Simulated assay, not measured.
Amino acid sequence: MALHCASKRLVKKDFNISCQEMAFFLLGKILVRQLDNGTILKGRIVETECYLGNEDKASKSYNGRRTPANEPMYMPFGTCYVYQTYGMYYCFNISSVEPGAAVLLRSLEPIVGMEEMKQFRQGKRASEITKPEKLCDGPSKLCISMDIKKDNCNKLDLGDPDNNMLWVEDDFLMNPDHLSVVKTSRIGIESAGEEWAQKPLRFYIAGNSSVSKRDKRAEKHLLIN
């Protein structure tokens, strides 16, 4: 498990990139959550997914769909979009420069505040959290462990220096040029049809034990190339 890292908070302009660029850019970065009592939680972003907006049949903004619920997808780049799934879990996204497009954070490698994360996960398949890498190895697990909900983090601006609840940091000890990134298909979107279900819009750091689901075929291709 990685130790506490030397890092710098990202600013607004850092999020002024396309959805696919952001999905790559965020890998290795640190998601930071400050709780109401001042406790800091940190996790390295190790897995992301792109949702491209208007053309993407798997996106909540497909065909220009715009509702009060998905409004953050149309807000300025770097806006938090938290939505509920299965009526009880949350997923956390970050809007990109294209209207209606956002990057889903799928998995984190816990770094700081693991005991607090375990407390948040109690009762949520607690048998899985005997290993630290199981705390945030999925989009809803990530939200539970970091206490990210629609009522406390939705529509937050990650580029706002006055936002002391949730932000992203660059890790000086993590060289993005040295990351081995696996590019593969997204998870759980079969209803969007085969074309969009198979598009390689999920990205993860190869070899990281906190990734939610490995694609061994894609990993083999990465090693070949």
Rank of each mutant, 00 (worst) to 15 (best):
A102K: 00
M174D: 05
Y83M: 09
C153L: 14
I224S: 12
C136F: 02
M75S: 12
V46A: 05
K149D: 10
L173H: 08
E219P: 11
I205H: 04
N225R: 05
R214E: 01
D137V: 05
Y83F: 10
T184K: 11
S212Q: 07
R9S: 03
L35M: 13
A101H: 01
K124M: 15
E195W: 14
N225F: 04
E195I: 14
Y74L: 07
K141C: 14
R44E: 05
L10F: 06
S127F: 10
Y83N: 05
V168R: 12
P161M: 03
R202I: 02
E49R: 05
D151F: 07
K213M: 10
T184S: 09
R66Y: 00
Y90F: 15
V32M: 11
C80T: 04
E21V: 09
D215I: 06
N163P: 04
M114N: 15
P76E: 00
K183P: 06
V97W: 00
T130I: 13
M75R: 07
I224R: 11
N63F: 01
L166G: 00
D157Q: 12
R217G: 07
G87A: 03
N175R: 10
N37H: 11
W196E: 04
P110A: 09
K141N: 14
C19I: 06
C80N: 13
I129F: 07
S107Q: 12
Y81W: 15
K13I: 06
S107L: 06
G113R: 03
M75D: 10
V32F: 13
T130G: 14
E98D: 12
A6N: 15
A58T: 01
N175D: 15
N152G: 10
T39G: 15
F203L: 05
P76W: 00
P161S: 02
L201Q: 03
E195K: 14
G38R: 11
N208Y: 02
R9K: 15
Q84R: 06
K12Y: 12
K150R: 11
T48P: 00
V97T: 00
K124R: 10
C19Y: 04
L105D: 05
A58D: 02
L223F: 08
F77S: 05
L31T: 05
D157T: 02
I224Y: 08
H178S: 11
I129P: 12
L108Y: 02
A192K: 12
E109L: 12
M88L: 10
S210R: 03
V168T: 03
K134V: 05
S95Q: 03
D160Y: 09
A218F: 03
D36R: 07
P72V: 02
K124H: 15
C50K: 03
V11A: 13
L108V: 02
V181F: 13
H4P: 13
I129W: 14
G43I: 06
L156E: 01
D14C: 05
M165I: 08
D157M: 13
G28N: 11
M146L: 15
S140D: 11
R202Y: 01
L108F: 01
Q84I: 06
K199T: 02
M88Q: 06
L27N: 11
M174V: 12
S61E: 01
M174A: 06
I187Q: 07
K124G: 04
P200V: 00
L142H: 12
N37C: 14
D14M: 08
V182R: 05
G43M: 14
T79Q: 09
Y86M: 09
A58S: 06
R202T: 03
V182C: 06
G43C: 09
M1E: 13
E219S: 07
A218E: 11
Y90Q: 09
M88Y: 09
A69I: 04
S127G: 12
